[in-house]
Design a protein around this nucleic acid. Structure first.
Length: 476
RNA sequence: GGCGGCAUAGCCAAGUGGUAAGGCAGAGGUCUGCAAAACCUUUAUCCCCCAGUUCGAAUCUGGGUGCCGCCUCCA
């Protein structure tokens, strides 16, 4: 049984899909006016991991993540750059996929763009006006919050609380300060679309309602995003969607990830303490970044700094070592008795059960990772005094397969294809260098042997002398 | 002012009633020419403080302290 913490109820609830065996997920994607930062990355990665786990559990997953490709931030940025706003957002949509790939975030099943769904939004806005839930003023259209009785149910606030705390500059044309824009009249030089209320563009919230309903239908399973979207974004989505639907639930489970802080402070553009994934992956492999992020439960806050990435790098290296040790052991031949294989398979089974139990409990990736480390230790231990045999190889293959399968749920490629992507030239050179060093070692010329080893380490290559021969690998 | 979250070893981090996972770092050992990797052993009598409930609490309740977030664009 899977349990999910639902922001709506503030409790973990058993997950019961709308349709048996299927799960529909909508996550609010980025506004494409810049490279995305590590905070955005956490959200993408959290939902990528969730969808991977659902798939692992046998669900047919439909995952939708939008691009907000027209809004104030894009327009302002485009103005600064002297670029066309839509060209700017198009550029950063492309960059999104580059960075997402570095973090092993899979493309969603659908990546709808706001600008390609103007018609859907217009239909929705028209309906809301005809139902008396929205009104037009000077080419703007606002949703009338007071007309939606459930307003505040997601964020646990009442309209009155919100009003008293409102720090917003009051727009006198609005009936209530909390009323939010569904449609904004275009100012000079802004991109616009024709509408019954004149030239304009959609408000931010309406796109997610229109696109999620279009691709997933009313009452879809999971709607998610960063914690700061609870209010007002998701609250507004609920109001306009459920107002539009007239009855029924917009989305059934609301999931929100915790924030990333830097030096214990919220990362934000205004504080200037944000890091783009583009910058981080220039210094650390995407896999390390990913491993770091899944090491903390998605709802907990997470502080980001290089020192912590260093720790993650070492921890990940440990996992990689396991898969290398297994590959090495499998390359050996022999006709041993095959002792211990049964026990190893028992451990594999146990680890996988632990992993599933952890993930079933509101996607506890930190606990799931611990199961991976337990399995790693079992495998290493088995390999450390392994006498090759047919049965042993069989057990090892199964163990490695399970190890990689579980790693993949977390988005980790424990088989490290990048390691095997060394070109021929490097392989040849290493063969040569190792040969020379072996000669030196045979002559007990330790200074030369050590010089080679140290020099290679400087260059990012680690040499290890083992009873089975010399092993080399690139440093992470 | 309103709403919410978090405080666990040197560091990171699970654990929400039954006596403290996992990782990094550290210590000792096996292996090694020396290393590295791996393996074995070890590292919190205690989970911010106080009071309470309970046979029993890091886990529940009340109070306090500290930190953070939302209420405004923001993942």
């Amino acid at each position: 049984m899977m349990k999910i913490y639902n922001t709506m109820s503030r409790k973990k609830e058993e997950f019961i899909p709308r349709e048996e065996g299927k799960v529909s997920i909508y996550a609010c994607g980025p506004t494409t006016y810049n490279f995305f930062h590590i905070g955005n990355a956490r959200m993408f990665l959290v939902f990528d991991t969730i969808r991977r786990y659902f798939a692992y559990r046998g669900y047919k997953v439909t995952y939708v993540q939008n691009f907000t490709d027209v809004d104030d931030k894009i327009i302002n940025r485009a103005r600064e750059e002297g670029m066309d706003p839509l060209a700017l957002s198009g550029k950063y949509i492309a960059e999104y996929f580059t960075d997402a790939a570095a973090l092993n975030i899979k493309p969603a099943d659908v990546h709808p763009k706001a600008t390609e769904h103007i018609v859907d939004m217009l239909e929705m806005i028209k309906t809301l006006i005809s139902k008396g839930l929205a009104y037009e003023v000077d080419g703007d259209v606002y949703f009338e919050v007071r007309k939606f009785p459930g307003y505040g149910k997601l964020s646990g606030r009442s309209v009155d609380d919100l009003r008293s705390g409102a720090r917003v500059d009051v727009d006198e044309r609005k009936k209530d300060p909390l009323d939010f824009a569904l449609w904004k009249a275009a100012k000079e030089g802004e991109p616009y679309w024709e509408s019954p209320w004149g030239k304009g563009r959609p408000g931010w919230h309406i796109e997610c309602s229109a696109m999620s309903l279009k691709y997933l239908g009313p009452g879809f399973d999971i709607h998610g995003g960063g914690g700061d979207l609870v209010f007002p974004h998701h609250e507004n989505e609920i109001a306009q969607s459920e107002g539009f639907m007239s009855g029924g639930t917009f989305a059934r489970y609301w999931m929100h990830n915790g924030f990333i802080t830097v030096n214990q402070e919220k990362m934000s553009k205004s504080l200037g303490n944000f890091f783009t994934v583009r910058d981080i992956t220039a210094k650390y492999p995407g896999q390390v970044v990913r491993f770091y992020l899944v090491g903390t439960h998605y709802r907990s806050p997470l502080d980001f700094d290089d020192q912590k990435l260093e720790m993650s790098k070492k921890a990940l290296a440990r996992l990689y070592t396991t898969s290398n040790l297994v590959k090495e052991a499998l390359a050996r031949e022999g006709t041993g008795a095959g002792a211990g294989g049964e026990q190893l398979l028992q451990s594999v089974k146990h680890a996988e059960a632990e992993f599933v139990a952890a993930m079933d409990d509101d996607f506890n990736t930190a606990l799931a990772a611990a199961a991976l480390f337990d399995l790693s230790k079992e495998i290493n231990s088995f390999v450390s005094d392994y006498a090759p045999s047919a049965a042993g190889h069989q057990a090892l293959r199964q163990a490695l397969e399970a190890f990689a399968r579980l790693g993949d749920v977390l988005g980790l490629d424990l088989l490290q294809p990048e390691q095997s992507q060394n070109d021929n030239l490097v392989d040849k050179l290493m063969e040569l260098i190792i040969g020379i060093r072996s000669q030196a070692r045979q002559n007990k010329d330790w200074p030369t042997a050590d010089k080679i080893r140290d020099g290679l380490k400087e260059a990012g290559i680690v040499l290890e002398d083992t009873p089975q021969g010399v092993r080399w690998k690139r440093k992470l």
